[in-house]
Design a protein around this nucleic acid. Structure first.
Lengths: 329, 329
DNA sequence: ATGAAAGCGCTAACAG
DNA sequence: CTGTTAGCGCTTTCAT
């Protein structure tokens, strides 16, 4: 494994010249450049990023923290991040945290110890204090899920308004008895979506029934099934369900099906996220579309600005209600 | 951001002593150690891995290449890799390649340029020549999917035998007309699973019908639906389908359901991988279980040995046929 | 257009 | 037990 010195020797030039060729500086004569390139090829030389990074004190590596890779919601966001990152000559690396603060800290450490230039976190279960402290000295952006009080810039949608619109849609097509299948309220988005749900009910003179609000520990398919079972057992059964994730909603769909009921005739269902799969269910799922690709784009841009030391403002992106079969009569 | 020199100065010792404390060497007196630790805390010092890695010429970073994070099949393997990696003081980073050789090359470059110590690839669509060349100078292990001819160590299961057993099971419960829903035969596992399928038919005197073999470009849900549509349109309709991935099989399940047919009474279905979801379908899916966690463990162990410069042998792990509702009468 | 040399932050061999 | 020092591989300033 050759190093820059050996290349210089082989080409009969100084290491400075090799470095210039490596970095595409045009202050090198064509002839010299050729010689250097030949030497590089001959020695099968690969410049070590460790040397370069130590010297320039940057790694051009971006870390993306996600709770789990098994939720398709993150797919498109990651693509969005990647798009911008690559165009700016950064590489991205995925870090699965399982919402485990210890694991998270491993990746934080990579930033603290200069192996990565910044972090985009999509993990809502983060250790807030640690994250906050990290952000004091390093580049951190929150994407989709966030903690307001940390002062860390975030990109997200208006969760309260999105939820409000979803529920309002159900009311407009005639529903009064609407269940909310929510995530644990330790998450900000869960609290916000509950607020939107309440506002829609209030505005339409519908009294809130606490037994219509079900919390799930997790946003997965199985949780949706489980929660739907509970809802179906209510004495005064709701005629509509708003689930705060598509996976939850799909679980609900299955459970309703098993119970021999029909969607949307017996029970209407609305999801959240517009994952690809939400269009492949039977019936297809009405859902809130988050601009995931754009969210990724924006998050990456914000992070790179932050790395450059610029001031960064949080951004709220638009969302959209996508009406499909699960709420059509 | 303090460096080791400033810590040394603050503590009134040499950088060597600070380094010793950092690396937990017990050749430092308790008193000195205390002083150093205080200085570290006071200056909020974080040792730079760039310096250390340059010096030790290792990064203790392992790269895991996966085609896409959206296939749950990889989840458990990754957990297995992580388990071993962490125990040996390595960190793992996920790299999504989208089976795109260019993207792949970005991550290969990270290894070539010393930012990572090795790679476990689960990407079957790899550029074979590039991979082979990479493995000549760097630590590379193939996991699950592999190319025999590269000479790169791999851990996998006996795909031919697994397929043979799946098809034999279908024959044993009375099926003669068995379709194979296969991946593109550019993949070794697809060729091997086809061989197993053929062997089972031959051994039981069943003539192979070419129209019973459907190739899909991809292992996803939608491909399964699409392929099943084709199969249902065959004039002499099969009574059983062996799909080489659970996602394909689940797509098939849905399509059969849409056609108003019943699984397993009208058509039996066998999948492959035993992803979590395969137990949540209706009916639950008979499938081949790969020892995914173990596969991850083994892959990580092999890679770390390889990094240490040891010789590494390829390994074939056991698999298991899990019989569930989709083939029960 | 090119080279000499300093230095990024760290570890480890050697000396004491 | 601790300090001095060389050097990992690179970039970049300053000369020439």
């Amino acid at each position: 494994m050759a190093n820059i010195q050996q290349v210089a020797k082989q080409a009969g030039v100084s290491v400075a010249t090799v470095s210039r060729v490596l970095n595409g500086q045009n202050t090198v004569s064509a002839k010299t450049k050729m010689r250097v390139e030949e030497a590089i090829k001959k020695l099968n030389y690969e410049p070590s990023l460790l040397g370069r990074n130590l010297r320039t004190s940057e790694s051009r590596l971006l870390l993306i923290l996600i709770p789990t890779i098994s939720n398709p919601f993150y797919l498109e966001i990651i693509k969005g991040i990647e798009q911008v990152a690559i165009s700016q000559n950064y590489n991205i690396l995925l870090c699965e945290t399982d919402s485990n603060p210890q694991k998270e800290n491993i990746y934080f450490d990579l930033v603290r110890k200069k192996m990565a230039d910044g972090i985009i976190t999509m993990d809502p279960a983060v250790n807030v204090e640690t994250l906050k402290k990290l952000a004091e000295n390093y580049a951190v952006i929150q994407c989709s899920e966030y903690e307001e009080c940390t002062g860390i810039p975030y990109v997200t949608i208006d969760n309260e308004e999105a939820s409000y619109r979803a529920v309002k849609h159900l009311i407009q097509i005639g529903h009064h008895k609407i269940a909310l299948m929510n995530a644990d309220e330790k998450y900000l988005f869960a609290r916000l979506r509950k607020m939107g749900y309440k506002r829609a009910l209030e505005e339409n003179g519908i009294t809130l029934k606490n037994e219509y609000i079900i919390s799930t520990s997790n946003l997965g398919f199985e949780n949706g099934q489980y929660a739907m079972k509970k809802i179906l057992n209510l004495q005064d059964r709701p005629t509509a369900v708003f689930a705060v994730s598509d996976l939850l909603a799909i679980g609900a769909l299955k459970e309703i099906n098993i119970a021999g009921l029909h969607v949307p005739n017996d029970i209407a269902v609305v999801g959240f996220d517009k994952i690809d799969f939400s269009n492949m269910t039977n019936p297809t799922l009405t859902t809130i579309a988050q601009p995931m690709r754009k969210m990724g784009n924006v998050a990456a841009r914000m992070l790179i600005e932050k790395i450059k030391g610029e001031e960064v403002e949080s951004i709220i992106l638009d969302h959209e209600l996508v009406i499909r079969e699960s709420t059509s009569r």
